[in-house]
Each structure stands twice: as C-alpha cells, then as structure tokens.
C-alpha cells in the first residue's frame, strides 16, 4: 500500500546489514529512511530488499548529493535519477540538505556550508523550485551542521530557511543534532534557535550522535558524526522541540560504526517515549 505522509512516530535509517533481520522480525517502527544515492544502481539486492521493506513500512527518501546550495546548476542527470527513484518507490517524503557537495573537480562527498546572503537565497530558492518541479512534489530542506561562519553572511540561518520555505512552498527538516552542533560551534543558544524555527513548516525531525574536539583556540567544537547514541543534551532539546511542535516523524540517524539492530531499537524506544509523552499531555490538557 502506498504511504503519502510519514507517521508522527520514530523511524530508522535502513542499513544493509539489517535487511534480513528487519524482514524476518518486522519491528514496530513508523518508517525507514534511505540515502537516495545508495539505491541508484540499476538492480540487484539493494532494490530487492528495499522493495520488500516498502511493502511493510513508509519510506523517507533522503538525498545527500544534489548540491542544492551549489553555485553550479543542478545536475540534471542526478535529478532524473531521483525522479526515477521517487516514481519507483513512491516515498512518503523526499528531503535534501541546505549545503553543496559538487564542484568542477567532482563530487566531494561532504555537506559543505553556504553563506547566507540575498544572492545565495535567490539561488537556493531557484534550485528548490527546480527540484520540486522535476519531482512533482514538495520536498523538505534540512538545516545544516557547520564548523565555520562566513563573514559575508547577512541573514540568520533560521530566517534563511524560513524564507526558502515561504518562497518555494517546501517543508523543512529540523535536525536537532545539527542545531546543537552549530549552536555550540558558533556560541549560539540552541533553544533560542528552536524557538525561532518556523515549526509549521517542519515535516520531519532528525536525531544523531555528535563527536567532540577543539578548535585552534582550544574551544569546544562539535562534529556531526552519526556514529553513536543521541547525546543527552540533544535529547533534551528534542523534548523541548516536541513540546512546542507536537508529535513529528523522528529519525534516528546512525551511519558510521553501525551497531546491532537492538541498539537502534533502544534509541527508537526513547524517541517513542518523548512522542507518547507529548500525546498524553495533550490528551490530558
């Protein structure tokens, strides 16, 4: 059966090492999310498994390579590949990043930062318009985690994202770990960021674990690492977010040093408690 919206429940990133276990046990989960680029081979086991999983769960298709923040025009071939995937799997959601990752030298495989100016805003708006036109659907755009600031930036990130959503009609993906990483890295208040975030546009939340190091001045520098449990301070901001927004589809992202499936389900349980708690409070009030 097709799913056209993600349920306001916990979801997990789908990893090949868990395919068989998921199909055998059908764990109780709201949805699975995959990186679109990992399913752009022509055939074989990845598609076979994804098709089987889509028969049982809603799918969130999450792109990591479109370079929406890039100075160059969007890669038409890549857009076509995305459209083919959307047509084939009919995901409940498609999302991408406010970042760039391709340049003349090739694909750099990282989500690189964009300065926030009226000119870059126009460019990102036109790229999001193009994506939505080619895919024939609304997309979600994710807030980035960043390690540097641009001197030329004149617009605050929250306002930049809100303007993109207002001008293109796209939704937003609020990554609370990214909020925490950027807030610590740039000496900002993560709660103030969340409280100003245009939550009526948010269609999904991401949670992940960060790593920690220091910068040249010996000050705390958080790294968006996706290789551990969600840190307690991120969970606390997530709880704060959900109280403000109500229950939202919430993904646990764990892409490096992927643990046993049971560890992921333990994170899912914690997310479920936050979502259920919000629901109960709303019903009680």
């Amino acid at each position: 059966m097709p799913f056209d919206t993600l349920p306001a429940r916990p979801g997990l990133g789908l990893k090949p090492q868990h395919y068989a276990q998921i199909l055998a046990n059908k764990p109780d989960l709201g949805f699975f999310e995959v990186h679109a680029e990992n399913y752009m081979g022509e055939g074989g086991p990845p598609h076979r498994y994804l098709a089987a999983i889509c028969e049982n769960y809603p799918l969130s298709l999450h792109g990591v390579g479109l370079s929406i923040g890039g100075e160059a025009p969007l890669d038409r071939d890549h857009l076509k590949r995305l459209r083919a995937l959307v047509e084939r799997y009919q995901p409940a959601s498609f999302s991408e990043h406010l970042a760039w990752s391709s340049h003349d030298e090739g694909y750099l495989n990282d989500l690189l930062p964009v300065p926030y100016t009226p000119q870059t805003l126009d460019r990102v708006v036109s790229h999001v318009d193009e994506v939505q036109q080619v895919l024939g659907r609304r997309m979600l755009l994710e807030n980035p985690s960043t390690y540097v600031l641009f001197e030329e930036s004149t617009i605050e990130e929250v306002d930049f994202l809100a303007a993109i959503a207002d001008r293109t009609g796209c939704g937003l993906l609020l990554d609370v770990n990214n909020v925490m990483v950027s807030a610590v890295n740039h000496r900002l208040d993560p709660v103030a960021y969340i409280d100003r975030f245009p939550v009526h546009h948010v269609g999904e939340i991401h949670l992940a674990g960060y790593d920690e190091t220091t910068d040249d001045a010996g000050e705390r520098l958080l790294i968006d690492a996706h290789g551990s449990r969600v840190r307690p301070d991120v969970f606390e901001r997530y709880r704060h977010t959900i109280i403000r927004t109500g229950a939202l589809p919430t993904l646990i992202e764990w892409d490096n040093n992927v643990p046993a499936f049971d560890v992921l389900m333990d994170e899912v349980r914690l997310v479920g408690e936050v979502l259920d708690g919000t629901l109960n409070r709303r019903l009680a009030s």
């Binding site: 540097v148 641009f150 001197e151 910068d215 040249d216 001045a217 520098l221």
Partner: peptide
C-alpha cells in the same frame, strides 16, 4: 578568506573538519 570562527578569526582546525 572570509571563513571565520565566532571570534572572527580564521581557524585551521575548523576548516580541517571539512
């Protein structure tokens, strides 16, 4: 040029993350 830390200075460890 133009990439800075919140202290307003270039920071090699921050850029090294990328």
């Amino acid at each position: 040029a133009g990439l800075v830390s919140p202290r307003g200075t270039a920071d090699s460890k921050r850029f090294a993350v990328y």
